[in-house]
Amino acid sequence: MNAIAEPYNFAYLDEQTKRMIRRALLKAVAIPGYQVPFGGREMPLPYGWGTGGMQLTAAILGRDDVLKVIDQGADDTTNAVSIRRFFSRTAGVRTTVDTTEATVIQTRHRIPEKALNNDQIMVFQVPIPEPLRFIEPSETETKTMHALNDYGVMHVKLYEDIARYGHIATAYAYPVLVAGRYVMDPSPIPKFDNPKLNRSAALMLFGAGREKRLYAIPPYTDVASLDFEDHPFEVQKWEHSCAICGSTESFLDEIITDDKGSRQFVCSDTDYCAQRVAQAEVTQ
């Protein structure tokens, strides 16, 4: 991006817009899992590239906040770099790669491995906020289904998966029931991360810029992944451990290392991995 010559308001958005977003966020926190429409603005990044998450971050960021931005679990992926630079330029806040130091963590597609605390806020980038979208394309109809708690069709999809494949075939953006009432799309995090949502100490905020919806899970809320009693929810498992730090507990990325298809697996959460390596070096 070219250098921005003119001065912008703190974190780019004007105060009125931030206030509007915060009001919507309060509503969202009051009704866990419910999609609140908001007057999303055009941002300097394209729709689909994190504008929803960015608007939420801009609305809640204060001068003393410490911001971490990750994409696919890594701080160094190009779009995470781009977003982090955006806030560092427009808000001047301290940025970090250390999960424990951050007060606000904006993320795309992962939740950090390290458990979060009650002083932290996660902001998720959401492409399609509507969990029923691919079963029911009409917005008018899905709104009614949420209002009437009419979620039969959600389990229909899971039933079909089991009938066709023998088990539930959703690997990410796995739908959850929040506080026993609203069915929610947790954004395209792998289902591996779903359990981290349940009764988390942190506040979870979700922003969809293009679709102009936001939603939230307050701390210590029950979040249950949808399943059947006889086909219970399961997380992914690998046969390998991380080639760098040796972890057997984290989500692993597959790296192809030569053109014969040799592969290695490394932690997706780069900070978690680096911390483990640092720890190991200390104890040696």
């Binding site: 979620y151 039969g152 229909v156 006889d230």
Partner: peptide, 22 residues
């Protein structure tokens, strides 16, 4: 969706959560 899912939908809507039963 399949015939089985069509028939089972009302039960699922009413909270039946056992695939075998459905």
């Amino acid at each position: 969706v399949s015939a089985g899912a069509n028939i089972g939908e009302r039960l699922m809507a009413q909270g039946v959560r056992n695939y075998g039963v459905l």
